[in-house]
Nucleic acid binder design. Structure first.
Lengths: 214, 214
DNA sequence: TCAGACCTACCGACCGATCGGTAGGTTAAC
DNA sequence: GTTAACCTACCGATCGGTCGGTAGGTCTGA
């Protein structure tokens, strides 16, 4: 947001367009999508409404772009890095870490926070977003399933556990303040402990004891 | 919702008013507050807009009433019953049970689900709602603190744990379907296990073993 | 090199629709 | 006849979106 205002010229279309997306994400997050008028977005971007509409086609498409970008972030910052981790428990532990770092980062929070209130999207747009969200849940449940299998935990439904975990992680946007008293590291540590000890029990406790003596 | 349409008459004011609140909660929940027009609420209640305004003073006050009622429900269905339970662990376990039963009940979901998107409220209304919400968080953290103290758990921050728990519980409104494959009982059992074993570890496992042999 | 065609980027003014809310009248019960 | 419970008809404001037009850069050909 610290970028200098560019002189009007041809050829910097993508620059302005991306700037519009960033600003729209911030304004939508701050005021809520429905409470944000296109004039609000325009003036926050240093444009008039007509000027804004030169870059986008509709308010809804603007929201869709922002939400889709939020899912791109999730893929880049969480899903992709996990592919390199072979041990299920390490993968799950890292997933909690990366997911929290994503949603607690101020710049990303503006985007990812919006993902939970996309009722406004209609038809195909909404189902495209929902499909990507469900894929993420599926991934989480799959990791949890591998972990419980490896440690022989029988009485945990992976899908339900995934819902519990995503609730813990995503709910942070309701209470986390960057300037608050909880550091990100403390949150990560606490949530990892609650969830992993929660599903694994003794297996987790033994492992922690082993790590401590090394 | 199954109530017969009443003939116009004097003296049934409270009846109609409460009906308006219930219907407004349902419509707000289904379409979102900002996307719901007062004509929508009115026609859902079998009134015209002017007729609706005979019973309420503004759209915002209507939302406030609904949210406040949601917190009344929480107090009646969760907070009050807990006061009779002296053992901290029992109290925490029961709280998870009651909270889930509250938010998974279709009729209440319409009201409690709205509590998470009250950005629209302005000034004193919002702070009044937020105060009651914070009181609930404080209560949860306090119970957790008692439990960890009793079982000598040192490395769990009760406030952070409370946020984790409320995340698990409240996030259900994002995925729970009454007709879905998970029964309420299964959800309650799983969430109790994950959270209680998550913060207590061996103490919880030992206790479960003891209960099983009795 | 320079005129002119063409482009992107943007603006002021405006549109139809819809919003929350109201003024003032009507009906029915007591 | 008073009053609660509604109605029809309307208001000003604001919404998402568009229109015609313009400033100024770029490309092309003579």
């Amino acid at each position: 947001m610290g970028e200098k205002r560019q002189k009007r010229s041809s050829g910097n279309g993508d620059f302005t367009r991306n700037r519009v997306f960033e600003i729209a994400a911030e304004v939508f997050h701050r005021k809520g999508y429905d409470n944000t008028s296109m004039s609000d977005v325009a003036s926050a971007a240093g444009l008039t409404k007509a000027g804004l509409y030169h870059h986008i086609s509709s308010k809804e498409s603007l929201l869709y772009t922002v939400l889709d970008y939020g899912l791109d972030l999730t893929e880049a910052y969480v899903i992709k890095p996990l592919e390199d981790i072979s041990d299920p428990l390490d993968r799950l532990k890292t997933m909690i870490d990366l997911h929290l770092r994503l949603v607690l980062e101020e710049r990303n929070l503006e985007v990812t926070g919006l993902l939970h209130e996309c009722k406004t999207l209609s038809g195909s747009d909404r189902s495209r977003i929902n499909r990507r969200k469900k894929e993420y849940i599926r991934m989480a449940a799959s990791i949890i399933g591998e972990v419980t299998k490896k440690y022989n935990v029988k009485d945990v439904n992976p899908k339900l556990a995934a819902y519990a975990l995503l609730g813990m992680l995503n709910w942070t946007y309701q209470w986390y303040k960057v300037s608050g008293s909880n550091t990100r590291e403390e949150i990560v540590r606490t949530f990892q402990r609650i969830f992993l000890q929660g599903i694994l029990g003794n297996a987790w406790i033994d492992r922690q004891a082993k790590v401590a003596t090394h």
